[in-house]
Simulated scan of single mutants.
Amino acid sequence: MDTAPAVSRPTALPLLDTDVLRSFVAIAESGSFTRAANHVFRTPSALSMQIKRLEETLGQSLFVREARQVRLTPEGEMLLGYSRRLLRLNEEAVTQFLAPSLEGTVRFGTPDDVGSRILPRVLSQFARSHPAVQVDVMVGRSIELLERLDKGELDLVLATAGNEGFPADRGEVVHTEPLVWAGREGGVALERSPLPLAMANHGCAWRRMALSALDDAGLAYRIAYISENCSGQEAALLADLAVAPLPRNLVRTPLSILGDDAGLPPLGDYRVLLLRSGLAGEATDVLAGHVVDTFRGMR
């Protein structure tokens, strides 16, 4: 009697742990095991063990470890896209069953330089977890946003500390970042005398910090271009017509940070504040949490 051949069963593929993927994404986005460890509340050594096991599971090296940072290998870049999608799907599934149902509207004010960096991520995450909440965004100057908050016209406001007329005792500091001199990479604006500057109008904290530093250093300058938003200042820099003070994370190719050899004085740090209305509801608090978490991931 013939015996039926044994049916070969495919070997089950390993499952990727969402906790490990969250650590992987944090390292990839911050470029540092130490910064990522602060974000996911683990030690750097614990993250290192997680990544080692993940690399063994996939049979690929995911990071190139350099002296002061880590960067993704081509395989790591591929995994980053999958990881973000898996984490989003996991968040949506869990939220569908466990997250409280929030409704209503949150009126959110932000300066353009801050909002342009965090709004895409904040709004995307918030919309996935609380799709029934409408977010109305207003972009404006910090002092004007504060006035609208105090009038009850806004629920949540981001503002730059140090702006003229802005109270020193208002708000929660959610982000601190170095202010740097920026110009066109390989440009000649820095070599002109007096030094041409692209600035915001009177009252801007960056403007006051930059002019005070130049005055203290005894350097001659002229304000060549004025714009209320960063895109206007960046246009003058891209045309190599001026230099400007910008947050370090806003300086991207073809702009470059003008280092110590440029002969310009240091500018120090600037701070971003978060302010809430006294009548803010639960939806505002949840959105504020997303804002804080996004800034934390930028460190």
Score class of each variant (00 low, 15 high):
240 D>G: 02
36 A>N: 00
196 P>T: 03
234 E>S: 13
295 F>C: 04
110 T>K: 06
225 Y>H: 12
102 L>P: 04
287 L>I: 00
237 L>A: 04
5 P>R: 11
105 T>W: 10
216 D>W: 11
153 E>A: 13
136 D>V: 13
163 N>E: 14
284 T>W: 03
85 R>Q: 09
247 P>Y: 12
223 I>S: 02
196 P>Y: 02
264 L>V: 04
118 I>A: 02
3 T>A: 09
174 V>M: 02
182 A>M: 06
29 E>M: 07
112 D>L: 11
118 I>T: 06
270 Y>I: 15
190 L>V: 05
220 A>N: 08
193 S>A: 13
225 Y>V: 12
81 G>D: 10
123 L>W: 00
181 W>L: 03
20 V>F: 10
94 V>K: 13
211 L>E: 11
101 S>P: 11
146 L>W: 07
28 A>R: 01
159 A>C: 09
234 E>Q: 15
175 H>Q: 07
175 H>V: 01
75 E>N: 14
271 R>T: 11
284 T>G: 00
262 A>R: 04
283 A>W: 03
176 T>W: 12
239 A>C: 11
179 L>E: 06
175 H>E: 01
167 P>I: 01
195 L>K: 06
153 E>I: 08
21 L>Q: 01
220 A>M: 08
79 L>H: 04
210 A>Q: 06
62 L>V: 06
54 L>M: 05
64 V>D: 15
29 E>N: 05
238 L>G: 14
256 S>G: 15
21 L>M: 08
128 R>I: 08
112 D>H: 10
214 L>T: 03
101 S>I: 14
154 L>F: 08
161 A>T: 03
278 G>K: 09
279 L>A: 14
31 G>L: 00
168 A>T: 12
205 A>E: 01
206 W>M: 13
276 R>W: 12
240 D>L: 08
202 H>D: 09
104 G>F: 05
32 S>F: 00
87 L>S: 04
234 E>G: 11
111 P>N: 07
236 A>Y: 06
111 P>V: 05
43 T>A: 15
2 D>G: 00
215 D>S: 10
191 E>W: 08
118 I>Y: 07
241 L>V: 08
269 D>Q: 14
130 H>E: 09
290 H>M: 09
179 L>F: 05
132 A>K: 09
49 M>T: 15
87 L>P: 00
284 T>M: 05
28 A>F: 06
217 A>M: 08
296 R>I: 07
242 A>F: 00
37 A>E: 06
103 E>S: 12
52 K>M: 14
207 R>T: 03
268 G>D: 10
59 G>Y: 07
131 P>N: 07
266 P>H: 04
266 P>V: 04
117 R>Y: 13
267 L>P: 05
61 S>N: 15
159 A>P: 01
215 D>K: 10
114 V>A: 13
79 L>M: 07
160 T>V: 14
27 I>P: 02
105 T>D: 10
70 V>M: 13
113 D>Y: 11
37 A>K: 01
62 L>I: 05
200 A>H: 08
188 V>M: 15
210 A>P: 06
186 G>L: 09
5 P>E: 11
286 V>A: 12
134 Q>C: 13
55 E>V: 01
23 S>R: 15
72 L>D: 05
142 S>K: 00
98 L>Q: 15
113 D>W: 10
